[in-house]
């Protein structure tokens, strides 16, 4: 067998995304759109965290914008953003050749395996908020982490079966690597030869500046604390009503509200633990209820 070949590099950030869409679409994934709520990680999209539960097979891929208020840097840091994208793939059950499929996706976006050192370095993923963990790796390309690769073992505190394979690409980082760019804001967002060439800066810089000011200076902590309590109440009520999907939405809202409060440093370590525990209870509760329902629907 000869060494695998890489394709030409994509021409822009969006071209890279489109290549991944085309590739994973061809692997039978439903190409979904981003979830319309603020989340801190692509995994939290119900298409991953909830679909990993229950007995039904599932394949999906999507781009998910992520908001991490505390990571915002007023657009001044070349690598850190308060808002960025993850490319998320889930295959349930994971096919036996998932590692090859993943490597091919890198070749698809122009990473030449004979030029670049691609490594799978132990990194066991966990997300206590949704009671999830799995085994897998960080994938390094010439020492840079470009993806997280996980075989889910538990979600919502429940063993999953079948096991899902989950791939998360840090899109900006990967793009910076592919385009040899040192500052994220210099990424070509669309084709640089197009009539209106746009960079990542043109699209997002002002947003980073203003959102940072909101996250660190202007957010109304008291109001947010009220929101948190309301989201919690609504989520619990929805679970009472056997509606885990909207209950999960309100768990996500509570989680993001907590992240905003946390970004203001307005929480002592003890309180912080308590908040995290409250979000975890909501998310796990919804996940468990969803899993039960899925199991029942599968039998019906």
């Amino acid at each position: 067998m000869t060494a695998p070949k890489a394709k030409e590099k994509p021409v822009s950030f969006q071209d890279l995304i489109l290549r991944l869409h085309a590739y994973w679409g061809a692997q039978g994934c439903a190409i979904l759109q981003p979830y319309d709520l603020e989340v801190g990680a692509g995994t939290l999209h119900p298409a991953t965290v909830l679909r990993a539960l229950g007995p039904k097979d599932w394949r999906a891929a999507y781009v998910q914008p992520c908001r991490r208020p505390a990571d915002a840097r007023y657009g001044e840091n070349p690598m850190r953003l308060g808002h960025y994208y993850q490319y998320q793939v889930i295959l349930k059950p994971n096919p036996a050749n998932l590692q090859d499929l993943y490597l091919n996706s890198l070749y698809e976006i122009g990473i030449d395996p004979l030029l670049h050192d691609i490594r799978f370095v132990e990194d066991d993923w966990e997300n206590p908020t949704v009671g999830a963990w799995g085994l897998g790796w960080e994938v390094w390309c010439d020492g840079m982490e470009v993806s997280q690769y996980t075989y889910f073992q538990q979600v919502g505190g429940l063993d999953v079966f079948p096991v899902s394979g989950e791939l998360t690409y840090g899109l900006e980082r990967l793009a910076m690597y592919v385009f040899g760019v040192d500052n994220v804001f210099d990424l070509p967002f669309n084709d640089p030869t197009s009539p209106v060439p746009l960079t990542y800066r043109d699209v997002f810089h002002e947003n980073e500046v203003q959102q940072s000011a909101f996250n660190f200076e202007q957010s109304d902590v008291e109001m947010l604390q009220g929101w948190f309590a309301d989201c919690e109440k609504q989520s619990n009520a929805l679970r009472e009503a056997n509606l885990p999907l909207p209950a999960y939405d309100f768990a996500l809202k509570a989680s993001h509200t907590f992240n905003l409060i946390d970004a203001r440093g307005a929480i002592s370590p003890t309180e912080r633990q308590a908040y995290i525990a409250r979000v975890r209870d909501l998310a796990r509760g919804a996940a468990e209820q969803w899993a039960e329902q899925e199991a029942e629907r599968a039998l019906a």
Binding site: N94, P95, A96, L135, G136, V163
Partner: peptide, 12 residues
């Protein structure tokens, strides 16, 4: 860990 639809546990 387990993988796919199998029961066997191995490190990967």
């Amino acid at each position: 860990m387990r993988t796919g639809t199998g029961d066997l546990r191995w490190v990967r």
